[in-house]
Design a protein around this nucleic acid. Structure first.
Length: 491
RNA sequence: CGGGGCGUAGUUCAGCCCGGUUAGAAUGCCUGCUUUGGGAGCAGGAGGCCGCUGGUUCGAAUCCAGCCGCCCCGACCA
């Protein structure tokens, strides 16, 4: 057996890269920092999208599309936002090329096509959207505006990793406008809950909901809420964010409305997003050295049937029986593929579908035909069992639910076993080396947060929403603290 | 932006130090036969601007210079 994938124990980071490449999720593009998301990867992303899209619509949102290019002056409008994103913007300066007079067949930038105002490729769309909202909002009757867009964005990252951080990435960004602060805050939290629901119940990744510290806040936000998850190597990953933007963008773009009382007021804003980074989370939360483990609710293919035969006649017999099973499975909305290709032996196929993360495999040979059985193997535990062919559709339906639950439980117990309350600085330093979340008291200052980061590389992932009031002393400075916050080394 | 690595067949790489037949292997691909319950075997075959440009030389994948690209490790980030 060829070892295509580095073991997690040897090098987690190589394991991740090998897995993404070998399982056919994605590959490196010819452009630095960019990736090609291949059909298998895109199919999973599409499943994520369609579930989330429905959740957004069920909570009253509608989709729209705004331009890829944003005038530089728009980005300058909101000061914090501008400073935050300035360093990572791709800039369009010209609109034309021409043939190089000195080198036949080559193209050069036509300097006569220089743009009067540079355009930037959107790193996020608050500015161009709020420029529109200025025209759309005059009265409280125009509010709320609840818009989402599915889009690609670009941030010129210095260091990139497949799915986790690429220069171009795909995401959704919700941008809402409200008449009151309360309503905007409510929206921010509502969408955070939608994200958490999706991550736990579909991705099978347990998350912790919280609020970011000022240092970690989104550029231009009043408050950034987030969902944080723990990966198998003990590092944390921010899986999504939801921002309460206050009136910052309304003021920057002069978006005012006339209230019921006849007063002119600035609108209140939120924005919230999740990206293809979730693909990275999905991979790192569940998969093993044999390949991907995809929760059934997101798997592009639920079941693969592999026939084992010695001749055409046997294949025909097996195919007939497999057809009946497939029909029954499809009737239950379970996707199934019959792989009767003659190119590879069954053993090769087993390994291949395990690599790709298909949750359930059925093997059928003549032995099964004689006994009216099939062999069923589940991807998450790799357990095999021989079951009666009668009612196999119901068996698999249950099995898929069981797999979904089992994957989640496993991730949850890992997360819980790696979340430690720590009360002294010595303990903190020892524990952070072991990985996982650390729940500790913090004095609330940016200085302490910075020092901890410098000394341990750990950041405050969030102040958990369910953090209980508990007086204590800061693990670093010894100053008083009212609640514990979550620390971790993060992606 | 610093530090390191790599660029040779579709893919992974050897060859380079020490220049010299027609540039190799594995794997994948094509043809045929035998196989098929955990990554099959045999036989035959196709496949290369040796990253680019220039230099040294009778002769360059190999030596020299410049350039380009990508990956990995650190500082910034969803």
């Amino acid at each position: 057996m060829a070892d295509k994938i580095t073991s997690r124990d040897i090098n987690y980071s190589e394991w991740y890269n090998d897995l993404v490449l070998q399982s056919g999720l994605a590959e490196y593009a010819a452009v630095r920092g960019c990736m090609v998301i291949k059909p298998h990867g895109w199919a999973i992303w599409e499943n994520m999208k369609s579930i989330l899209d429905k959740m957004f619509k069920d909570t009253g949102h509608v989709n729209a599309s705004f331009p890829l290019l944003i005038p530089k002056s728009f980005l300058e409008q909101e000061e914090g936002h501008a400073e935050g994103f300035a360093k990572e913007c791709a800039v369009v300066t010209h609109y034309r090329l021409k043939t190089d007079p000195d080198r036949k067949g080559k193209l050069i930038v036509d300097n006569e096509s220089k743009l009067e105002e540079e355009l930037i490729i959107r790193p996020t769309s608050e500015t161009i959207i709020w420029n529109c909202y200025k025209n759309w909002i005059q009265s409280y009757r125009d509010l709320p505006i609840l818009i989402n867009q599915w889009a690609n964005v670009m941030r010129w990252e210095m260091r990139t990793r497949l799915f986790l951080r690429t220069s171009e990435f795909h995401w959704q960004e919700g941008h809402t406008a409200h008449a009151t602060k309360e309503e905007a805050v409510e929206e921010t939290v509502k969408m955070l809950n939608v994200y958490a629901d999706f991550m736990e119940n579909y991705m099978a990744v347990p998350v912790i909901k919280g609020v970011k510290t000022i240092n970690e806040r989104f550029a231009g936000a009043e408050d950034t809420y987030c969902v944080e998850a723990l990966m198998q190597d003990g590092k944390a990953l921010q899986m999504g964010t939801s921002h309460f933007l206050g009136q910052n963008f309304a003021k920057a773009f002069d978006v005012k409305f006339l209230s019921k009382e006849g007063k002119l007021e600035f609108a209140w804003a939120t924005s919230w997003g999740v990206s293809t980074r979730m693909m990275g989370a999905l991979i790192m939360a569940h998969s093993d050295d044999n390949g991907l483990i995809i929760p059934p609710k997101l798997a592009p293919l639920h079941v693969v049937i592999i026939p084992i035969y010695k001749n055409e006649e046997q294949l025909k017999t097996i195919t007939e029986k497999a057809d009946a099973i497939m029909k029954a499975l499809k009737a239950k909305n379970i996707s199934v593929k019959f792989d009767d290709s003659d190119q590879n032996k069954p053993g090769w196929k087993y390994a291949e579908y395990e690599l790709k993360g298909v949750p359930v495999r059925i093997a059928m040979g003549m032995r099964d035909i004689e006994n009216n059985t099939v062999e069923i193997a589940r991807r998450d535990t790799k357990e095999k069992s021989v079951v009666s062919a009668d009612g196999v559709d119901a068996y698999i339906e249950n099995l898929l639910n069981d797999i979904q639950q089992n994957i989640y439980n496993k991730a949850l117990s890992y997360r819980n076993n790696n979340l430690h309350e720590v009360n002294t600085w010595d303990e903190f330093q020892i524990q952070i080396e072991k990985g996982g979340f650390i729940s500790a008291h913090w004095d609330g200052t940016g200085e302490t947060e910075e020092k901890i980061k410098e000394e341990t590389k750990a950041t405050i992932r969030c102040i958990p929403l369910d953090a209980k009031e508990e007086s204590g002393v800061c693990v670093y400075s010894g100053k008083p603290s009212e609640r514990r916050v979550l620390f971790a080394r993060a992606y």
